[in-house]
Design a protein around this nucleic acid. Structure first.
Lengths: 187, 187
DNA sequence: CGTAGCATGTAAGTTGTTACATGATTCG
DNA sequence: CGAATCATGTAACAACTTACATGCTACG
């Protein structure tokens, strides 16, 4: 009676939106929860099997000529129950590793210029992320104008926007400081 | 000629601050980089061995009566070189998983009250984090008033402060919205 | 005609956590 | 006297990524 892991609950959650194949799960997850949750096929397909063994999902096969078979999974009652139970449990958040910060922490060894270089690349990425959040917001409004959960989806996008803006501010401030330091030290 | 992994570079980095034992590395890392990087003993001890095999660190043993032996590791020239080379490479940042956001994304299944509960717990944690950053800032000033890298250390703390404050703002806003929604729906 | 998309899946390897084992000393 | 701190380490497991394998269709 092994417990499910986070990945498996994530899949149950996505299946609560609509019945889907493994391929669909990957696609949907990428634009919907992709900014804070990623799954690879190497996790998805074996997990779907296991969930089915446990009776939490079941699949039906759709056949179309000239197309690979689609295995469409849907939640069972038991699956819904498990999911809801898990959703109520307080979320456990570990400290995410951040390689940029780690490199900056040891920045003295490579000097301010190299650090500024890392930061400016990061800054570009952040602006792209911001643009992506806006695009996703629009996509949610279009593709699910009526879906009762769209308010919750916006909540998680709003998170992305908040912390991305905060990172932009931090990046710009840090780059200014490093530049100042660089010129001061030449005296 | 297997490449080193992130953990091993992190250890090299910490050893660049001062020669240390595995135990010391764990202690130091917790308060210095602990808000964005964690290592367990299960990684530290085997990694130190491997780094020594590769000639990137070497250890000497300190013996004190009535105390366990300390294996103090220090960087070799080769180790410094490897570290610096890695620091120059552009950092790779994967999307960190966030269980809180995942649960909120599916919040429709448990309702606004349960989501507010999750958020308020998170909010408490965020305030603790903020307090911890201030304490660390002071500790840095005290314990390393002269260390040339302390500006870089402050940079990473500043990151923590920025995104923690942004998260606090997001939490409060989200809680307000969920409360509004909860009362509106009763009509 | 090559590339991207559709669609499934596996195998090998890497990485990481957790719990365990040991044992002395110091502090309350 | 019990708990925390100092200090090392291993074994078992869990989780995750990547590359590979297959093969058809639609598009430019």
């Amino acid at each position: 009676m092994k417990e499910l892991n986070q990945s498996q609950f994530a899949l149950l959650g996505l299946l609560s939106i609509a019945p889907m194949s493994g391929y669909d799960l990957k696609q949907l997850s990428e634009w919907s929860v992709g900014h804070f949750w990623r799954e690879s096929y190497g996790q998805i397909y074996p997990s779907l099997r296991k969930l089915e063994e446990l009776g939490l999902v079941k699949h039906s096969t759709e056949t179309k000529p000239g197309r690979p078979d689609r295995h469409v999974y849907r939640l069972t009652r038991a699956g819904e129950g498990e999911l809801e139970h898990w959703l109520e449990l307080p979320p456990v958040n570990e400290v995410p590793r951040n390689e940029l910060l780690l490199k900056l922490f040891f920045g003295g060894l490579i000097g301010p210029e190299a650090c500024i270089e890392h930061l400016s690349k990061h800054l570009l990425k952040l602006h792209e992320d911001l643009a992506a959040y806006e695009a996703t917001q629009k996509r949610i409004e279009k593709e699910s104008g009526k879906h009762p959960q769209r308010r919750y989806w916006s909540l998680t996008l709003s998170y992305g926007e908040h912390i991305t803006k905060a990172q932009i501010a931090w990046c710009e401030k840090s780059m200014r400081e490093l530049k100042r330091q660089g010129t001061e030290n030449r005296e």
